[in-house]
Design a protein around this nucleic acid. Structure first.
Lengths: 136, 136
DNA sequence: TAATAGTCTATTATTTAAGTAGACTTATTT
DNA sequence: AAATAAGTCTACTTAAATAATAGACTATTA
Protein backbone atom coordinates (compact mmCIF):
# COMPACT_ATOMS: atom_id res chain seq x y z
CA UNK A 1 0.00 0.00 0.00
CA UNK A 2 1.27 3.45 -0.87
CA UNK A 3 1.90 5.79 2.06
CA UNK A 4 -0.49 8.66 2.74
CA UNK A 5 2.20 11.02 1.59
CA UNK A 6 2.43 9.30 -1.78
CA UNK A 7 -1.33 9.15 -2.13
CA UNK A 8 -1.62 12.85 -1.40
CA UNK A 9 1.17 13.64 -3.87
CA UNK A 10 -0.63 11.77 -6.65
CA UNK A 11 -3.90 13.51 -5.87
CA UNK A 12 -2.26 16.90 -5.88
CA UNK A 13 -0.40 16.23 -9.11
CA UNK A 14 -3.64 15.10 -10.70
CA UNK A 15 -5.30 18.31 -9.66
CA UNK A 16 -2.44 20.41 -11.02
CA UNK A 17 -2.50 18.39 -14.23
CA UNK A 18 -6.08 19.51 -14.73
CA UNK A 19 -5.00 23.14 -14.34
CA UNK A 20 -1.90 22.91 -16.47
CA UNK A 21 -1.18 26.09 -18.41
CA UNK A 22 -3.58 28.14 -16.32
CA UNK A 23 -1.06 29.72 -13.96
CA UNK A 24 -0.31 29.12 -10.28
CA UNK A 25 -2.78 27.20 -8.08
CA UNK A 26 -3.09 27.88 -4.36
CA UNK A 27 -2.04 25.18 -1.89
CA UNK A 28 -5.30 25.86 -0.07
CA UNK A 29 -7.32 25.21 -3.22
CA UNK A 30 -5.67 21.85 -3.77
CA UNK A 31 -6.05 20.94 -0.10
CA UNK A 32 -9.73 21.81 -0.10
CA UNK A 33 -10.62 20.01 -3.32
CA UNK A 34 -8.55 16.93 -2.63
CA UNK A 35 -9.24 16.81 1.10
CA UNK A 36 -5.59 16.83 2.09
CA UNK A 37 -4.32 18.28 5.43
CA UNK A 38 -2.92 21.59 4.28
CA UNK A 39 0.27 21.59 6.30
CA UNK A 40 1.12 18.10 5.18
CA UNK A 41 0.45 19.12 1.61
CA UNK A 42 2.81 22.09 1.96
CA UNK A 43 5.76 19.82 2.64
CA UNK A 44 4.82 17.46 -0.17
CA UNK A 45 4.56 20.22 -2.76
CA UNK A 46 7.84 21.70 -1.60
CA UNK A 47 9.49 18.34 -2.09
CA UNK A 48 8.02 18.01 -5.57
CA UNK A 49 9.39 21.46 -6.35
CA UNK A 50 12.85 20.44 -5.16
CA UNK A 51 12.56 17.45 -7.48
CA UNK A 52 11.91 19.76 -10.43
CA UNK A 53 8.38 18.62 -11.13
CA UNK A 54 6.64 21.71 -9.83
CA UNK A 55 7.43 25.41 -9.79
CA UNK A 56 6.02 27.95 -7.37
CA UNK A 57 5.38 31.64 -7.17
CA UNK A 58 5.18 33.57 -3.92
CA UNK A 59 2.98 36.48 -3.00
CA UNK A 60 -0.40 37.49 -4.36
CA UNK A 61 -1.39 35.50 -7.41
CA UNK A 62 1.11 32.86 -6.37
CA UNK A 63 0.81 29.13 -6.02
CA UNK A 64 2.14 25.92 -7.53
CA UNK A 65 2.09 24.64 -11.10
CA UNK A 66 3.50 21.82 -13.21
CA UNK A 67 6.69 22.68 -15.05
CA UNK A 68 6.10 20.25 -17.89
CA UNK A 69 3.05 18.90 -19.66
CA UNK A 70 1.28 16.22 -17.60
CA UNK A 71 2.02 13.76 -20.37
CA UNK A 72 5.72 13.99 -19.68
CA UNK A 73 5.59 12.43 -16.22
CA UNK A 74 4.64 8.80 -15.69
CA UNK A 75 2.89 7.53 -12.58
CA UNK A 76 5.92 5.39 -11.79
CA UNK A 77 8.11 8.49 -11.77
CA UNK A 78 5.63 10.41 -9.66
CA UNK A 79 5.44 7.68 -7.02
CA UNK A 80 9.20 7.42 -6.78
CA UNK A 81 9.67 11.17 -6.49
CA UNK A 82 8.07 11.31 -3.08
CA UNK A 83 9.87 8.27 -1.83
CA UNK A 84 7.28 5.64 -2.53
CA UNK A 85 8.66 2.21 -3.44
CA UNK A 86 6.60 0.39 -6.02
CA UNK A 87 7.82 -3.13 -5.33
CA UNK A 88 6.28 -5.21 -2.57
CA UNK A 89 9.64 -6.19 -1.05
CA UNK A 90 12.94 -4.31 -0.66
CA UNK A 91 14.85 -7.13 -2.37
CA UNK A 92 12.96 -6.57 -5.64
CA UNK A 93 12.87 -2.79 -5.53
CA UNK A 94 14.78 -0.91 -8.20
CA UNK A 95 15.07 2.39 -6.36
CA UNK A 96 14.88 1.20 -2.76
CA UNK A 97 16.78 -2.03 -3.03
CA UNK A 98 17.97 -3.83 0.09
CA UNK A 99 19.45 -7.26 0.24
CA UNK A 100 17.59 -9.89 2.24
CA UNK A 101 19.39 -11.03 5.36
CA UNK A 102 18.33 -14.62 5.08
CA UNK A 103 18.13 -15.65 1.47
CA UNK A 104 19.98 -16.21 -1.76
CA UNK A 105 18.15 -14.25 -4.41
CA UNK A 106 19.05 -16.73 -7.11
CA UNK A 107 17.14 -19.52 -5.39
CA UNK A 108 14.55 -17.61 -3.34
CA UNK A 109 11.02 -18.38 -4.49
CA UNK A 110 9.58 -15.34 -2.77
CA UNK A 111 12.01 -13.09 -4.58
CA UNK A 112 10.98 -14.61 -7.88
CA UNK A 113 7.26 -14.20 -7.24
CA UNK A 114 7.68 -10.61 -6.16
CA UNK A 115 9.87 -9.78 -9.13
CA UNK A 116 7.10 -10.90 -11.41
CA UNK A 117 4.51 -8.76 -9.67
CA UNK A 118 6.84 -5.79 -9.73
CA UNK A 119 7.34 -6.12 -13.46
CA UNK A 120 3.62 -6.44 -14.06
CA UNK A 121 2.96 -3.34 -11.97
CA UNK A 122 5.68 -1.29 -13.62
CA UNK A 123 4.45 -2.22 -17.06
CA UNK A 124 1.25 -0.38 -16.22
CA UNK A 125 2.59 2.51 -14.17
CA UNK A 126 5.27 3.38 -16.69
CA UNK A 127 2.70 3.75 -19.42
CA UNK A 128 0.26 5.96 -17.59
CA UNK A 129 0.97 9.63 -17.04
CA UNK A 130 -0.31 12.45 -14.88
CA UNK A 131 -2.69 13.40 -17.67
CA UNK A 132 -4.68 10.30 -16.86
CA UNK A 133 -5.30 11.56 -13.33
CA UNK A 134 -7.40 14.45 -14.58
CA UNK A 135 -11.01 14.10 -13.44
CA UNK A 136 -13.91 13.64 -15.78
CA UNK B 1 5.56 -2.26 0.13
CA UNK B 2 4.50 -5.11 2.38
CA UNK B 3 4.88 -4.51 6.12
CA UNK B 4 7.66 -6.24 8.03
CA UNK B 5 5.04 -8.36 9.69
CA UNK B 6 3.78 -9.61 6.35
CA UNK B 7 7.29 -10.18 5.07
CA UNK B 8 8.15 -12.21 8.15
CA UNK B 9 4.94 -14.21 7.83
CA UNK B 10 5.77 -15.16 4.25
CA UNK B 11 9.31 -16.14 5.18
CA UNK B 12 8.09 -18.27 8.07
CA UNK B 13 5.42 -19.94 5.96
CA UNK B 14 8.02 -20.70 3.32
CA UNK B 15 10.23 -22.32 5.91
CA UNK B 16 7.36 -24.39 7.28
CA UNK B 17 6.38 -25.36 3.74
CA UNK B 18 9.82 -26.88 3.34
CA UNK B 19 9.28 -28.94 6.50
CA UNK B 20 5.73 -29.97 5.72
CA UNK B 21 4.91 -33.47 6.99
CA UNK B 22 7.98 -33.61 9.23
CA UNK B 23 6.30 -32.69 12.50
CA UNK B 24 6.45 -29.51 14.60
CA UNK B 25 9.16 -26.91 14.00
CA UNK B 26 10.51 -24.71 16.78
CA UNK B 27 9.82 -20.97 16.68
CA UNK B 28 13.47 -20.49 17.54
CA UNK B 29 14.55 -22.55 14.54
CA UNK B 30 12.45 -20.48 12.15
CA UNK B 31 13.64 -17.24 13.75
CA UNK B 32 17.27 -18.24 13.47
CA UNK B 33 17.13 -19.45 9.88
CA UNK B 34 14.97 -16.63 8.59
CA UNK B 35 16.55 -13.90 10.73
CA UNK B 36 13.28 -12.82 12.31
CA UNK B 37 13.05 -11.26 15.81
CA UNK B 38 11.79 -14.21 17.81
CA UNK B 39 9.18 -12.45 19.92
CA UNK B 40 7.72 -10.72 16.90
CA UNK B 41 7.63 -14.07 15.15
CA UNK B 42 5.74 -15.60 18.08
CA UNK B 43 2.84 -13.21 17.64
CA UNK B 44 2.78 -13.71 13.90
CA UNK B 45 2.68 -17.51 14.14
CA UNK B 46 -0.02 -17.29 16.77
CA UNK B 47 -2.10 -15.17 14.43
CA UNK B 48 -1.59 -17.65 11.61
CA UNK B 49 -2.73 -20.39 13.95
CA UNK B 50 -5.87 -18.46 14.84
CA UNK B 51 -6.50 -18.12 11.12
CA UNK B 52 -6.35 -21.90 10.74
CA UNK B 53 -3.27 -22.03 8.60
CA UNK B 54 -0.92 -23.38 11.24
CA UNK B 55 -1.29 -25.77 14.14
CA UNK B 56 0.97 -25.90 17.17
CA UNK B 57 2.01 -28.38 19.77
CA UNK B 58 3.15 -27.34 23.22
CA UNK B 59 5.76 -28.86 25.46
CA UNK B 60 8.85 -30.83 24.59
CA UNK B 61 8.96 -31.80 20.94
CA UNK B 62 6.47 -29.06 20.20
CA UNK B 63 6.44 -26.28 17.66
CA UNK B 64 4.43 -25.07 14.67
CA UNK B 65 3.46 -26.80 11.45
CA UNK B 66 1.27 -26.26 8.38
CA UNK B 67 -2.18 -27.83 8.62
CA UNK B 68 -2.59 -28.31 4.89
CA UNK B 69 -0.26 -29.02 2.01
CA UNK B 70 1.68 -25.92 0.94
CA UNK B 71 -0.01 -26.17 -2.42
CA UNK B 72 -3.37 -25.39 -0.88
CA UNK B 73 -2.55 -21.83 0.17
CA UNK B 74 -1.89 -19.09 -2.37
CA UNK B 75 0.44 -16.18 -1.74
CA UNK B 76 -2.50 -13.82 -2.03
CA UNK B 77 -4.27 -15.66 0.78
CA UNK B 78 -1.15 -15.71 2.91
CA UNK B 79 -0.58 -11.98 2.56
CA UNK B 80 -4.16 -11.18 3.46
CA UNK B 81 -4.15 -13.45 6.49
CA UNK B 82 -1.72 -11.29 8.38
CA UNK B 83 -3.44 -8.07 7.46
CA UNK B 84 -1.43 -7.12 4.44
CA UNK B 85 -3.36 -5.28 1.73
CA UNK B 86 -2.24 -6.16 -1.78
CA UNK B 87 -3.63 -3.11 -3.57
CA UNK B 88 -1.69 0.13 -3.67
CA UNK B 89 -4.66 2.26 -2.57
CA UNK B 90 -7.52 1.62 -0.12
CA UNK B 91 -10.09 2.50 -2.77
CA UNK B 92 -9.03 -0.44 -4.95
CA UNK B 93 -8.49 -2.96 -2.17
CA UNK B 94 -10.79 -5.96 -2.02
CA UNK B 95 -10.23 -6.84 1.61
CA UNK B 96 -9.28 -3.44 3.01
CA UNK B 97 -11.55 -1.22 0.98
CA UNK B 98 -12.10 2.40 1.98
CA UNK B 99 -13.88 4.99 -0.06
CA UNK B 100 -11.89 8.03 -1.14
CA UNK B 101 -12.99 11.25 0.48
CA UNK B 102 -12.44 13.38 -2.57
CA UNK B 103 -13.26 11.44 -5.69
CA UNK B 104 -15.90 9.68 -7.69
CA UNK B 105 -14.58 6.23 -8.42
CA UNK B 106 -16.40 6.04 -11.72
CA UNK B 107 -14.44 8.97 -13.13
CA UNK B 108 -11.23 8.88 -11.08
CA UNK B 109 -8.22 8.17 -13.26
CA UNK B 110 -6.05 7.19 -10.32
CA UNK B 111 -8.59 4.64 -9.23
CA UNK B 112 -8.60 3.17 -12.71
CA UNK B 113 -4.84 2.93 -12.94
CA UNK B 114 -4.55 1.33 -9.54
CA UNK B 115 -7.31 -1.15 -10.30
CA UNK B 116 -5.35 -2.35 -13.28
CA UNK B 117 -2.17 -2.82 -11.27
CA UNK B 118 -4.08 -4.63 -8.55
CA UNK B 119 -5.54 -7.05 -11.07
CA UNK B 120 -2.15 -7.67 -12.63
CA UNK B 121 -0.66 -8.34 -9.20
CA UNK B 122 -3.46 -10.65 -8.09
CA UNK B 123 -3.24 -12.62 -11.29
CA UNK B 124 0.24 -13.64 -10.22
CA UNK B 125 -0.21 -13.97 -6.47
CA UNK B 126 -3.34 -16.08 -6.79
CA UNK B 127 -1.52 -18.61 -8.91
CA UNK B 128 1.55 -19.05 -6.75
CA UNK B 129 1.39 -21.07 -3.55
CA UNK B 130 3.47 -21.55 -0.43
CA UNK B 131 5.16 -24.50 -2.13
CA UNK B 132 6.94 -22.03 -4.35
CA UNK B 133 8.56 -20.41 -1.34
CA UNK B 134 10.58 -23.51 -0.55
CA UNK B 135 14.29 -22.84 -0.99
CA UNK B 136 16.46 -24.52 -3.55
C1' DT C 1 3.58 49.58 3.12
C1' DA C 2 -0.12 46.43 3.77
C1' DA C 3 -1.85 42.16 2.37
C1' DT C 4 -1.04 37.72 0.27
C1' DA C 5 0.99 33.38 -0.27
C1' DG C 6 4.86 30.26 -0.23
C1' DT C 7 8.96 28.66 2.95
C1' DC C 8 11.08 27.00 6.98
C1' DT C 9 11.65 25.15 11.84
C1' DA C 10 9.89 22.85 15.62
C1' DT C 11 6.61 20.09 18.03
C1' DT C 12 2.95 16.64 18.76
C1' DA C 13 0.21 12.44 17.76
C1' DT C 14 -0.45 8.00 15.84
C1' DT C 15 0.88 3.68 14.05
C1' DT C 16 4.07 0.02 13.35
C1' DA C 17 7.94 -2.64 14.83
C1' DA C 18 10.62 -4.65 18.33
C1' DG C 19 11.83 -6.17 22.92
C1' DT C 20 10.90 -7.84 27.86
C1' DA C 21 8.87 -10.51 31.62
C1' DG C 22 6.43 -13.99 33.20
C1' DA C 23 2.36 -17.28 33.17
C1' DC C 24 0.61 -21.41 31.35
C1' DT C 25 0.85 -26.37 29.05
C1' DT C 26 2.63 -30.59 27.75
C1' DA C 27 5.98 -34.32 27.71
C1' DT C 28 9.64 -36.62 29.74
C1' DT C 29 12.31 -38.38 33.49
C1' DT C 30 12.90 -40.33 37.88
C1' DA D 1 2.88 -39.37 40.63
C1' DA D 2 5.92 -35.44 41.17
C1' DA D 3 9.48 -32.63 39.43
C1' DT D 4 11.52 -30.56 35.73
C1' DA D 5 12.45 -29.13 31.18
C1' DA D 6 10.81 -27.43 26.75
C1' DG D 7 7.70 -25.13 24.55
C1' DT D 8 3.62 -21.80 23.57
C1' DC D 9 0.67 -17.93 25.23
C1' DT D 10 -0.44 -13.25 27.29
C1' DA D 11 0.46 -8.65 28.71
C1' DC D 12 3.20 -4.75 28.85
C1' DT D 13 7.10 -1.47 27.47
C1' DT D 14 10.22 0.87 24.33
C1' DA D 15 11.76 2.59 19.88
C1' DA D 16 11.24 4.19 15.34
C1' DA D 17 8.76 5.75 11.41
C1' DT D 18 4.80 8.16 9.57
C1' DA D 19 1.32 11.63 9.79
C1' DA D 20 -0.42 15.99 11.33
C1' DT D 21 -0.15 20.71 13.57
C1' DA D 22 1.54 25.42 14.91
C1' DG D 23 3.75 29.50 14.18
C1' DA D 24 7.48 32.51 12.65
C1' DC D 25 9.77 34.08 8.38
C1' DT D 26 10.40 35.68 3.48
C1' DA D 27 9.16 37.21 -1.06
C1' DT D 28 5.78 39.40 -4.18
C1' DT D 29 2.17 42.32 -5.66
C1' DA D 30 -0.82 46.24 -5.53
Amino acid sequence: MLSKKTQYALKALGYLAGKYGQGPVLISEIAKNKKIPIKFLETILLELKQNNVLESKKGKGGGYYLIESPKKTTLAQAIRLVGGPIALLPCVSINFYEKCKDCNEATCGLNKAMLQTRDATLKILEKKTLSELIDG
